[in-house]
Design a binder for these strands. Structure first.
Length: 887
DNA sequence: TAAAGCTTG
DNA sequence: CTAGACAAGCTTTAG
């Protein structure tokens, strides 16, 4: 017979933890009939996590029966002076018990006894009967029950994470065994239960004494042997208190419980009642989970099921001559990288009918192909770019996409940056579609399910795209984001798709040459470092490196991390003068990074066409920027000469063609000048001054640019950057290596000279406080719930974000507009030139020789005229036969 | 899987 | 008074 497992839960304690875990959400968790539900909700989540972890055969949840117990009779003030349980929690306790009943889990309380005693008694019963026992609670008192058969899990947060107290772990934490822990408490007393122990004895002393004597009885038997001390005096004086405390702390393991182990066996879930309860509480997520679990059990789920028709060669004609001018389409691929991911199937919703199929080749046949390519038939999709690229792989030039659920939901609210259709649907309380994780699994176990399940999933996806469209479009309108959506994000998705498909040519031969060069350099540095260290070790391991530098070589440790010594650049920079090994380590690190990430990394992702095809994530960042993955082409090195070499491998398609690069000059500061309306800063940009020199003149009170020294300019530049990030004197001081006082002076001068910048910063924070979000010039939103946080750090971060996001986000809006205009121009002029990269403020082009002159002219023009600000936009360009030379 | 470290704008 | 710049992705070590 399989091992029986008994799970005992301290109901009050876990409910209490659950309540406070979501205390801040108290007002959001209210059922339709006005009951608070935060504790119920979290309790269920924690319970699920624990059940999953323990997988018990028997479960019992113990509750306290009331205030009066045998302990209060023994000691009147037991648990006295405690805050009353808040009514918002009290009202949830009966509902938790009701929920447990419906879940088939026994709950129990016993007059005059605490939940602890019930658990103590049942765990003893369980141990005797050969059960493996697990106890879950938020209260460390129960750890005295830990044994080789019983583990006590102490809850750590509201998501079901726990710390396991075994006898070994008890020893590590307290230095004593579980049984001895009672005696330790006898000496310490318990503040929260309101009983004293021995005066001036805390955990340290108590642990030491019990480790020596084993119990308080033995301690007092040997007390006279102890040297005269304050401690001895206290022990003598408080003897009665200690023995009372021991009685109070001891859990009664033979309380008169009327439950048997059989009573605790897990029963079947009462689906009907539980569904009723969840509906009453408004728990959509649990309702959906319940339904899918009921579904698996063959129970009626009551959730919407989508009918579907499997599309085959034989019934393909049903799609001929469709009258609908709008359809929903979903193309399924397994895995993130849609440039190479295997096709799984597709769904097409026409009218009210869901067509699904695994036969991808059908897409290439008429009439299906015609529907996809017909621009006048509008398609609603989820992830336009992914869909477009996927179809392009099938040689289908699709058109008519004008609604993308993913883009719409990203613009409406990007707090959750999921790109899973199911997950996003759930945000809108639409649970009729599962997540891809649920359907396909992840990692090694990822697989396509059997046909019926796959088809259901595809049918649900196309249906939900349609179902949520009105709601999402309405939200876009309410947010005044129609333009952002129609005129920026949708068009830019096509532009990005084309850029990704083009890809960029990368020469493996150049990279291989670099790999050789770097390997030699690394070997050389390695040898020098080992020689000075006096031994060989792994330089890449911060742990080993820390040991060598700070223990063996005895260098002064500047900073610590959670796990040991910090060996970051910042730290090593300070140690540069101490030993030549430091510079060698810095060099080694820099080159090792380039070697592994860029040389080897890039070689691995060059596709069979000799090009790299990145994916731009359009719905990820909080500010509206793009990001680039597989490979990331937005962080190819440029600051060091060794790193820059990588760019020599990026070349135009034609051997005699050019890489042309054009980047905005100071776009974020220009945006700041625009949105703040600061006349002084606007004037600087309008007259074409070097902005950092101009700032230097201003903050150092100089009369002419000639007086600006390079150092002054460097300082001014740092202030300009700092302002954009929501500056502080501390941060600036650290950055420039100057005193805090001096930094403060710079900032004060800055605000004096550019008064409206200060005004803007204050306004940005005020706006976020009032509205709960920050907004760009194109109404892109970033929600900032932390702006009201009680914690200073958390709130400060939100405030800096409120200042920075409109600036960074507006700059992102601007370059997206430029990209759309640029792509349009290239197509209008029938140029062969391809836009291949976007790096936040820079666009890179692959240009045939004969088009260079045209490109030189039109690219800066288009970029500079993307939007009309109160200051001019300026774009600088360069070109060469590879990316390295395009400067 | 998380943390440390380094790369970019 | 607090801790401290904004936004990202990839590789490595180590548990």
């Amino acid at each position: 017979m399989a091992q029986k497992k008994l799970l005992l839960i301290d109901g009050n304690s876990v409910a209490f933890r659950a309540f406070y875990a979501l205390y801040r959400q108290l007002d959001r968790f209210v059922s339709p009939d006005g009951l608070h539900t935060n504790a119920i909700y979290t309790f269920k989540n924690m319970l699920d996590a624990i059940l999953k972890q323990v997988d018990p055969t028997n479960v019992l949840v113990a509750f306290d029966a009331g205030k009066v117990t045998f302990r209060t009779k023994m000691y009147e003030d037991y648990k006295g002076g405690r805050q009353k349980t808040p009514s918002e929690l009290l009202e949830q306790l009966p509902v938790i018990r009701e929920m447990l009943k419906d879940l088939g889990i026994k709950s129990y309380e016993l007059a005059n006894y605490e939940a602890d005693d019930i658990i103590g008694t049942l765990s003893k019963m369980g141990e005797k009967a050969g059960y493996e026992v697990t106890i879950v609670t938020g209260d460390k008192d129960l750890t005295q029950l830990a044994s080789d058969k019983t583990t006590v899990l102490i809850t750590k947060n509201g998501v079901g994470d726990t710390e396991a107290y075994t006898p070994e772990h008890m020893k590590e934490v307290n230095g004593v065994t579980p049984i001895e822990f009672i005696d330790m408490k006898a000496l310490m007393g318990d503040n929260s239960d309101n009983y004293p122990g021995v005066t001036k004895v805390g955990p340290k002393t108590a642990s030491r004494l019990i480790q020596k004597y084993g119990s308080i009885e033995n301690l007092y038997a040997h007390l006279e042997e102890m040297k005269k001390s304050k401690l001895k005096e206290n022990l003598i004086n408080d003897k009665d208190k200690a023995f009372l405390a021991k009685k109070l702390a001891t859990i009664d393991r033979d309380s008169p419980v009327e439950v048997t182990l059989e009573d605790t066996e897990k029963k079947d879930i009462d689906y009907e009642k539980l569904r009723e309860l969840y509906e009453r509480l408004g728990f959509k997520k649990f309702l959906a989970e319940l339904n899918s679990s009921a579904d698996a059990q063959g129970e009626n789920t009551g959730v919407e099921q989508y009918e579907y028709v499997e599309l085959t060669k034989d019934n393909l004609d049903e799609l001929a001559d469709i009258k609908e001018k709008e359809v929903d389409f979903y193309l399924e691929m397994l895995g993130d990288n849609y440039h190479v991911a295997p096709f799984v199937g597709f769904g097409l919703r026409v009218g009210k009918k869901n067509y699904v199929s695994k036969d991808i080749a059908l897409l290439q046949e008429m009439p299906l192909r015609g529907i996809l390519e017909n621009k006048t038939i509008k398609k609603n999709v989820f992830d336009l770019k992914r869909t477009y690229v996927g179809l392009h792989r099938l040689n289908i030039e699709a058109g008519g996409f004008d609604y993308d659920m993913l883009l719409a939901s990203y613009l409406v609210n990007n707090e959750n940056n999921s790109n899973d259709l199911g997950e996003i649907a759930h945000l809108y309380d639409e649970y009729s579609v599962k997540t891809d994780l649920e359907v396909y699994g992840k990692g090694k176990k990822q697989a396509v399910p059997e046909d019926a399940d796959l088809f259901k999933h595809l049918a649900a996806k196309v249906s939900v795209i349609q179902k949520l469209k009105p709601e999402l479009l309405k939200k876009l309108k309410d947010h005044e984001q129609d333009d952002l959506y129609d005129a920026i994000e949708i068009p830019v998705a096509f532009v990005l798709a084309k850029m990704e498909i083009s890809g960029m040519k990368v020469l493996p031969s150049t990279l291989l040459q670099l790999e050789n060069d770097f390997a030699i350099k690394l070997k050389d540095l390695e040898n020098k470092i080992y020689q000075q260290a006096g031994e060989e070790f792994n330089i890449n391991s911060p742990k080993q490196l820390g040991h060598i530098l700070f223990e063996k070589l005895g260098l002064p440790p500047v900073k610590k991390t959670k796990t040991g010594y910090s060996t970051s650049v910042e730290v090593l920079d300070k140690l540069k003068t101490e030993s030549p090994i430091i510079n060698q380590i810095l060099d080694y690190r820099q080159i090792a990074k380039i070697q592994s990430t860029y040389v080897k990394g890039l070689l691995d992702v060059i596709q069979s066409d000799g090009r790299v095809h990145t994916r731009y994530l359009q719905t990820l960042t909080a500010t509206g920027r793009l990001s680039s993955v597989d490979p990331n082409l937005q962080n190819i090195p440029t600051r060091t000469e060794e790193g820059k070499q990588i760019r020599k491998a990026f070349v135009p398609t034609d051997p005699d063609g050019y890489i042309f690069s054009c980047d905005y000059s100071q776009v974020e500061l220009r945006v700041l000048a625009h949105v703040s309306g600061d006349e002084n800063m606007q004037e600087a940009f309008k007259t074409g001054y070097d902005i950092h020199s101009h700032t230097a003149m201003k903050i150092f009170h100089l009369d002419s640019p000639d007086q600006v020294t390079p150092l002054m300019r460097r300082h001014a530049k740092a202030v300009n950057f700092g302002i954009v990030y929501g500056i502080s004197d501390y941060g600036l001081a650290k950055n420039l290596g100057i005193s805090r006082k001096q930094a403060k002076e710079f900032i004060d001068n800055y605000f004096e000279q550019y008064p409206k910048i200060k005004e803007y910063m204050d306004k940005a924070v005020k706006f976020a406080r009032e509205h709960g979000y920050a907004e760009t010039i194109m109404h892109r939103r970033r929600y900032l719930p932390d702006i009201h946080a009680k914690n200073f750090n958390v709130r400060s971060f939100a405030e800096r974000t409120a200042i920075n996001s409109p600036i960074q986000g507006s700059a992102a809006d601007i370059i997206k507009i430029a990209m759309i205009n640029m792509q349009k121009k290239l197509e209008e002029l029938h140029l062969k030139t391809k836009m291949v990269l976007q790096i936040h403020d820079e666009l890179v082009f692959d240009v045939p020789k004969e088009e260079l002159e045209t490109i030189k002219k039109i690219v800066p023009e288009v970029m500079q005229s993307a939007v009309k600000l109160d200051v001019p936009l300026v774009a600088d360009s360069g070109y060469g036969h590879n990316w390295y030379d395009a400067k």
